[in-house]
Amino acid sequence: MRPVRRPDVQRRRSKGSAVDWLRVGGHWSVWRLAVLLLVLLFSFPFLVMLTSAFKNAADIFHAPPQLLPRSWTLHNFREAFRQIPFWRYLGNTLLICGLNVLGTLLSCPLVAYALSKIRWRGQMPMLMIVLGTMMLPPQVTLIPIYLLWNHAGATDSYLPLIVPAFLGTPFLIFMLRQFLMSVPDELIEAARIDGSSELRTYWSIVLPLARPALATAAVFQFVWTWTDFLNPLIYLNDTSKYTLSIGFYNFFSENGVEWGPLMAACVLFTLPALIVFLLGQRYFVEGIATSGLK
C-alpha cells in the first residue's frame, strides 16, 4: 500500500520539480509569463464574449475589432432577461443537474466496485462492455432511444434526461474503476473477515475513501448535464420545462444572431458552472491525484 500523499508546495519549491528548467536565473517571472500566456490563450474567446456582452450593437461589429466597448451598456443583459425566463430555466437546469449528479454518485461507484474489488467471472466482459460503449458513435443510439422513450410516453418529461445517469455513465465508471483499483485490498478483506456484508463494506469503507474521486465524477457530470444541448432539445416540448442551454435558441433566427443578448446570456450561463468548478476544484484536482488514475 502506498501512503496517500498530499502535495507539499513548500518542499516542491525548495527541491525543484520536473519542469523547473523554465526557471531562468532563479526568478519566477518566466513562469508567471508562461501561465499568463496560457491563460490568455484559452480565455481570450471568453474575454471577447464578456466584453461584447457590455457593448452596443455598433461596437460589436467594428473593423478593426476592439476588445473594450467604447461605451459600456447593460442593455444586453436586460434584453437577455426579457427574452428568456432566465430564473425558471435556471431552476429547471439545476434540478436536472442535481438529479444527474445524484444518479451518477449512486450508480457509477457501485459498478466501478464490481469491476475492481469483487472477484467474479463477469468482471472482464463487463469492463469490455463499458469500454465498448464509449466507442459507440452517439448517432447510432439517438433515434432508437428516442422511440423507446416515446413508446413509454415519457417524452416532454425530465425522465429521459435523468434516468440514464442512475444507470451509470461509461466514462465515469471507467474513471472510478481506475481509482478503486488503487484502494488497498487489505482494508476490504479485513472488513469482510469481520463479517461485514459486501454492501456495508462498500458503503462504510470504500465510499468514504473514494470521496475525492466522487467529487471529480460529480463535477464532470454536472458540467456535462449543464451544457447538454441535444437531449433537452429532442425531448422537451413544453417551453416551461426548457433548460438554459436550449433557451439560447431564442437568440438565433433563420437570418442571423442577436449577438449582444446572446453574449450576455452566455456569460450568465457560464458563471454558475464556473463557480461549481472552482468549489469542486479543491477535491477535484487533489481527488484524482490521490486516486492514482492508472
Binding site: 459498478v111 464490481a114 469491476l115 469483487i118 463477469g122 442512475f166 444507470l167 451509470g168 465508471i173 462498500y202
Partner: peptide, 8 residues
C-alpha cells in the same frame, strides 16, 4: 458482482 454491476 452482478448485483453491484446491475445498474449498468
Amino acid at each position: 458482482g452482478l448485483a453491484f454491476a446491475s445498474p449498468y
